[in-house]
């Protein structure tokens, strides 16, 4: 029963993974039962195993044995089902925990703060505003984190096989239309909640002062912030942001392994950013990669004070050769004299 939660939707073995040979299909079905994720996720593992079984069976048949024997031998050579399913489940488990933890913390902090702010100025307090905020944050964060982890890891990605129309034949995943709509809706609703939360927190703070002495302008501010057109402004801004993110490729994903997705933007960043960095010069001519944060942290510089009083900064990159550093500093010094 519990394992079925991890296999929803599409509990039965996907038909694309079946070969038509009962012996091979039996193995594939038994393997499918051990895998996690929706049918669209499980196919990543099943398709590879299916291909292997078909190839092995054909090879054996060419060596002169009957189809039935070839099927039995091909299945026999595959070994235990667990060796495949364990790898798939482990990778999904890691991803589930990662996404669950991230979204849980985000949502938990958000809801905790919201509860704290709300309780700070009304009488419906359970223990005290801060404790209630923490309790709410933990509870809702855990619940939401688990849901998001499950949904984003095991349900969300849609298979796109075969992917021959995609450059380099990358194994890509696209979201279906309803999923794309839902994703937009979720982001918009969340951002609206954030806007609303900020508006409420700002507008409610003056009300901590007893109503009788609340200045008129504060009341005005409060009613101003409660105006529903704030929501429309937020909606407009977020739609704009969404369009920007979609256009720039930040909202589409590429998959490389069982459910491991790579953001298109990151997948393409080398192609996009590389020419830009190359145009800067030094790094581009020397290095064929995008420097990490750790790399930038180690970049040192020396300030040279020029004769006209201006400062010239010479950057020394951590993996430069000492000879290069020396030449650079020498050039800077010569330049300074000029």
């Amino acid at each position: 029963m519990l394992s079925n939660i991890f296999r929803f939707p599409g509990l039965s073995c996907p038909t694309e993974a079946l070969t038509g040979d009962t012996i091979l299909d039996d193995y594939i079905k038994r393997l499918d039962k051990q895998l996690w994720g929706s049918a669209k996720i499980r196919i990543f593992t099943l398709a590879e195993v299916k291909n292997h079984l078909v190839e092995a069976k054909t090879g054996l048949m060419q060596s002169g044995i009957t189809e039935h024997e070839a099927s039995i031998k091909a299945v026999g050579s595959m070994g235990s089902i667990e060796s495949y399913s364990n790898v798939q489940r482990k990778s999904l488990k890691v991803k589930l925990l990662k996404i669950g933890l991230q979204s849980g913390i985000l949502f938990g902090v958000f809801m905790g703060l919201y509860q704290w702010i709300i309780e700070a100025h009304n009488n419906k307090v359970f223990i005290n505003p801060l404790t209630d905020g923490i309790v709410y944050g933990l509870f809702e964060g855990a619940f939401f984190g688990f849901f998001m982890g499950w949904f984003a890891t095991l349900v969300w990605p849609e298979r796109n096989l075969p992917s021959h129309n995609i450059p380099d034949n990358k194994f890509c995943v696209e979201y279906s239309k309803p999923m794309r709509f839902l994703s937009k809706l979720v982001i918009v609703v969340f951002c609206l909640m954030a806007v609303w939360c900020i508006a409420v927190s700002i507008s409610e703070y003056p009300s901590r002062v007893p109503v009788k002495v609340m200045p008129a302008e504060d009341k005005q501010l409060s009613s101003y912030l409660y105006q529903p057109w704030w929501l429309f402004i937020g909606l407009g801004l977020l739609s704009g942001l969404n369009i920007f993110l979609v256009r720039s490729g930040c909202r589409s994903f590429q998959i490389n392994q069982d459910g491991f997705w790579i953001n298109q933007w990151f997948a393409r960043k080398q192609r996009i950013l590389w020419p830009a960095i190359k145009s800067i010069g030094t790094l581009g001519e020397t290095y064929g990669w995008i420097p990490s944060w750790n790399y930038w942290r180690k970049v040192k510089y020396i300030n040279y004070v020029l004769s006209n009083g201006k400062t010239r900064r010479i950057y020394l990159y951590p993996d430069m050769l000492n000879a290069d550093k020396f030449i650079l500093l020498l050039q800077a010094k010569v330049g300074m004299k000029d």
Binding site: K50, N51, E55, P162, S163, D168, N169, F171
Partner: peptide, 12 residues
Amino acid sequence: YWKPGQRGTDRK
């Protein structure tokens, strides 16, 4: 990456 195989199944 995936490529169509000779026997109709996709190869990874």
